[in-house]
Design a protein around this nucleic acid. Sequence first.
DNA 1: CGGCAAATTGAAGTATTTCAACGTCGGTGG
DNA 2: CCACCGACGTTGAAATACTTCAATTTGCCG
Lengths: 248, 248
Amino acid sequence: MSGKQNRGTGRDFRDLPSFSDLDPPALAALNAAARLVIYRAGQTVLFEGQEFDFVGVVASGALRIQKTLLDGRHSIVGLWVQGDILGCTIDGVSEFAIEAATDAEVFAFPRAQFEALLDEFPDLDQAVLLNILNELDRARDCIVIVSDQKIINRVAGFLLMMCKRFRGVEHLVEAGQNGIAIKIPVSRVDLAHLLGTRPESISRAFHALADNGDIDIMAPDLILIKDVSALAAKAGEEDHPLRGSKIK
Amino acid sequence: MSGKQNRGTGRDFRDLPSFSDLDPPALAALNAAARLVIYRAGQTVLFEGQEFDFVGVVASGALRIQKTLLDGRHSIVGLWVQGDILGCTIDGVSEFAIEAATDAEVFAFPRAQFEALLDEFPDLDQAVLLNILNELDRARDCIVIVSDQKIINRVAGFLLMMCKRFRGVEHLVEAGQNGIAIKIPVSRVDLAHLLGTRPESISRAFHALADNGDIDIMAPDLILIKDVSALAAKAGEEDHPLRGSKIK
DNA sequence: CGGCAAATTGAAGTATTTCAACGTCGGTGG
DNA sequence: CCACCGACGTTGAAATACTTCAATTTGCCG
């Protein structure tokens, strides 16, 4: 078994976006220190108001960052996928709950140990900061999408965001002959909570887009984008096929 | 004139939230290095896609962070007020435009010089990171607010956010005998763009809250909150009168 | 093959958008 | 000093989109 691999899990930090450019020593240290934790779909990783006593890096699957309102409504404010970093806070307390949207694997580090690594490897520190700034831009993009009054435009914006952000992540986005195939890692209900609406409206929006010929619904969670420009027009964005990723 | 003050402007970093706890040497260095720039309401500070070639700290007034969509719609994804830091990016390019929502003063630093200060004063570096994490939480709070389907609930959420975030900032929030007085630093149109709706709906929501007796509209931009609990219930939040600020 | 969860569809009710008109405030110029 | 103008806010009424509730379908797993 290779010394670069993490304790025989078959997963390696070198394969994670936002870590792939790190120096070999830093990668080796990360792999050596990480412990792989597995969450089942629906499981809670961290409760609202709970202290983040560890730092995590998503190895596979998707987590949702959410807040539960007093009347039981849920609001999802972001998704974390492969390569995203959890628990980079200063005070450690999270205003949001973290739950596994799908089965997920997370590399976990004791907080003190991770901070030691940050001190030891300046480029890791830099990568973490980049990740945070990245998240900030993502959150703002999400605001723009959710601010649209028309649900169909929000769904269009969401699909484009998937293209931009989840490219190269676990085959969630695959460019093919007939268009761009997108695997949506969350349910219709989650999507509704993410886009500030109800599952029925999400369903209707997808089928309206399909009737327009903009997309094909291969399966509820598998969408083929046939006309990127049409979606971009609805989302009010530039037509950005697949070039340009989050981190320049 | 005191040597601690910035070049005779009468403004001092010691008076800014998120800087007030810095060591005197750091404060002195900031005051010495800063140049005060004045923007008029409506003026553009930075265009979408433009490079952030400076770092700024808001000394007074309010700036809006926004994106203009292709069809001319605007979406405001955040407001910057006293103490907020502009231009803490790594690649420097901004996906959003920055405009002055009111007349505003900004301390500006050449990027290289600011980074030198960060290296020299670790607690400044820490304060900057805290500011970024703060912004991330603010953006997520904004998503929760905008995700609500009822406009009146969004307005309630906005007012509570003003209480939480803008407390102690330029008298925007004043607790008094009859309730909490809030000075809204942006127009109805901006508020509509911030909350994902139209100015007419904002107006109707304010007056509906007033008819309920939850608020008094002293002036279009001056709201007296008479029943925090009622607003909190609408926003789906805990009843958090005025305790607890963003940064613990 | 039965049972369950998720997704979809239909129809009625409701809230918001849209368009148009009116009111208000502050500044400018006669 | 007053009248006018323009920007901003408010109000009304009709059109539209979404939510809500109920029922049906689909797909998956035992």
